[in-house]
Simulated scan of single mutants.
Amino acid sequence: MKLHILAILCMATTIIQAQEETGLWTSDRPDGHAPISVMGDHTHSKGDWMFSYRYMHMNMKDLHQGSSEASMQDALSQYMVTPKNMPMNMHMLGIMYAPSNKITLMAMANYQSQEMELQNRMGNEFNTASSGFGDLKISVLYTFFNKNRQKLHAQVGFSFPTGSINQEDVTPMSAPNKTILPYPMQIGSGTLDANLGLTYLKEWDKLSFGSQLMGIFRTGENSNDYLLGNEYSINNWMAVPVNSWLSFSGRVKWAAVEKIHGANPDLNPMMVVTADTANSGKTYAEAGLGFNLYAFKGSLKDVRFGFEATLPIYQNMNGIQLKNQETLTFGLQYSL
C-alpha cells in the first residue's frame, strides 16, 4: 500500500513539474528567437551569456516624394545635385548577460559603410562614401512575467554618441578639398538617445508569435546644431517550427521617423537634396520572410543562424528622398 501511495505521489509530482515546465515560454526551439533583424526580442536565465554577429545590407534607390515616385528632373529643378542610389552595409556585434532571471543586460556595437551615387544638373555623376563605428547601445531588459507560454519584457537603454557626425569626402564642387557630407551619410546621431521597448511573446506547439513596440528618443542638439528625429515602430512576427532545428518566419513592421530639427550650418540646403532637412522623416511599412537554424545538440549546440529578406510595402516621405529597396540580414548567435 505504501509503495502504491509513493508511486502515485511520484507520478503526481512528475505531472505537476511537466505542467510547470510546459507552462513557461522557452527559447529552446528554432523559433525561440525572433527573426534575425529584430533586436532585444528575448531575455535569458540567470548566469546565461549570448554573443551575436549580424550583417545587414540595405539598398536605397530611386526617388520618392510623399507616397508617389519622383523623377530626377523633379529633384534637379529644385536642387543642384540629387542622389540616385545608396547601398549601406552594417556589421553588428552584440553581447547579452543575465545576472538574474528577471534582468538581462545587452550591449551592441556596429561598424557601417555606405556609398552614395549622385548626379548634378549637367548630367555628371559622382560618388561619395563614408564609414566608421556607429553609436554604442547599452540596454537593460526586464521580464514582467513568463507563464502560460507567454512572456512580456521591457527594454530601457541608451545610445551613446560614439559614431561620427563629421564624415567628409571630395565632391566636384569641393575638389581637391574634402567637404562635410549630408545627414544620411553620417555614421552617428551625435546625441545621447533613449531606447525604450516592450516585447510580448507567445508560443504554441507548432507556432509562435511576437510583437514589439520600440521608440528612439533624441535628446538635445549635437555639436553640429541639429537633432535627428525620434523614431517609433511596431514589429509583429509569426514563426513555424518545421522540426527541432528549423523554423520559417514572416514579419511586418510599421515605423515613423520624425524630421530633423535644426541644421548643420556647414551644409547648403539648396545644393543637394540630402542637405535639406525638409527632405527628412517618413512613415513606412515593410514585410520580411526568413528562417532560423538551431543546433540543439552536438558540437555546435546552442549555435543559431538566421536569415531574413525584407521589402517595403508602403513609404510616405517628407519632401524628396531615396526609396528603401531590399534589406538582407544574416546573423549568428551563440548562447552559453
Rank of each mutant, 00 (worst) to 15 (best):
residue 3 L to V: 15
residue 4 H to P: 03
residue 5 I to D: 02
residue 7 A to N: 06
residue 7 A to G: 02
residue 15 I to Q: 09
residue 16 I to H: 08
residue 24 L to W: 05
residue 25 W to Q: 02
residue 26 T to A: 11
residue 31 D to N: 14
residue 34 A to S: 09
residue 34 A to V: 00
residue 34 A to M: 08
residue 38 V to G: 05
residue 42 H to Q: 08
residue 43 T to S: 15
residue 45 S to K: 15
residue 46 K to F: 05
residue 47 G to P: 09
residue 48 D to I: 07
residue 52 S to H: 02
residue 53 Y to M: 06
residue 54 R to A: 02
residue 55 Y to R: 13
residue 59 N to Q: 09
residue 68 S to N: 04
residue 70 A to K: 04
residue 76 L to V: 05
residue 79 Y to W: 13
residue 80 M to W: 01
residue 82 T to E: 01
residue 83 P to C: 12
residue 85 N to A: 09
residue 88 M to N: 07
residue 91 H to L: 14
residue 93 L to E: 06
residue 95 I to C: 12
residue 95 I to D: 06
residue 100 S to A: 10
residue 100 S to Y: 13
residue 103 I to Q: 03
residue 104 T to N: 15
residue 105 L to V: 10
residue 108 M to D: 06
residue 113 S to H: 00
residue 115 E to Y: 04
residue 118 L to H: 06
residue 120 N to Y: 07
residue 123 G to H: 04
residue 127 N to Q: 09
residue 128 T to D: 04
residue 147 K to V: 11
residue 148 N to F: 15
residue 150 Q to I: 10
residue 151 K to D: 10
residue 155 Q to A: 02
residue 157 G to R: 05
residue 158 F to N: 01
residue 159 S to G: 07
residue 161 P to V: 08
residue 161 P to M: 07
residue 164 S to V: 12
residue 167 Q to K: 15
residue 168 E to A: 07
residue 170 V to K: 06
residue 170 V to Q: 10
residue 175 A to W: 06
residue 178 K to D: 12
residue 181 L to P: 09
residue 181 L to N: 01
residue 182 P to Q: 11
residue 187 I to G: 04
residue 188 G to F: 12
residue 192 L to C: 10
residue 195 N to H: 13
residue 198 L to M: 05
residue 198 L to Y: 05
residue 200 Y to E: 15
residue 201 L to G: 08
residue 204 W to F: 10
residue 206 K to Y: 00
residue 207 L to C: 11
residue 210 G to F: 00
residue 211 S to P: 12
residue 214 M to E: 09
residue 217 F to N: 06
residue 219 T to D: 03
residue 222 N to F: 04
residue 230 N to M: 12
residue 234 I to C: 05
residue 238 M to N: 00
residue 239 A to K: 03
residue 244 S to C: 04
residue 249 S to M: 06
residue 253 K to Y: 02
residue 254 W to S: 03
residue 255 A to M: 09
residue 255 A to V: 02
residue 256 A to F: 04
residue 259 K to Y: 02
residue 260 I to L: 08
residue 264 N to P: 03
residue 265 P to S: 11
residue 270 M to R: 00
residue 271 M to L: 12
residue 276 D to G: 06
residue 277 T to Y: 08
residue 279 N to E: 00
residue 280 S to P: 11
residue 284 Y to L: 10
residue 287 A to D: 02
residue 291 F to T: 05
residue 293 L to F: 13
residue 294 Y to L: 09
residue 294 Y to R: 04
residue 297 K to N: 15
residue 298 G to M: 03
residue 299 S to F: 00
residue 299 S to M: 01
residue 301 K to V: 13
residue 305 F to H: 04
residue 311 L to R: 14
residue 315 Q to G: 10
residue 317 M to I: 13
residue 324 N to M: 15
residue 326 E to I: 07
residue 331 G to C: 01
residue 331 G to W: 00
residue 336 L to A: 07
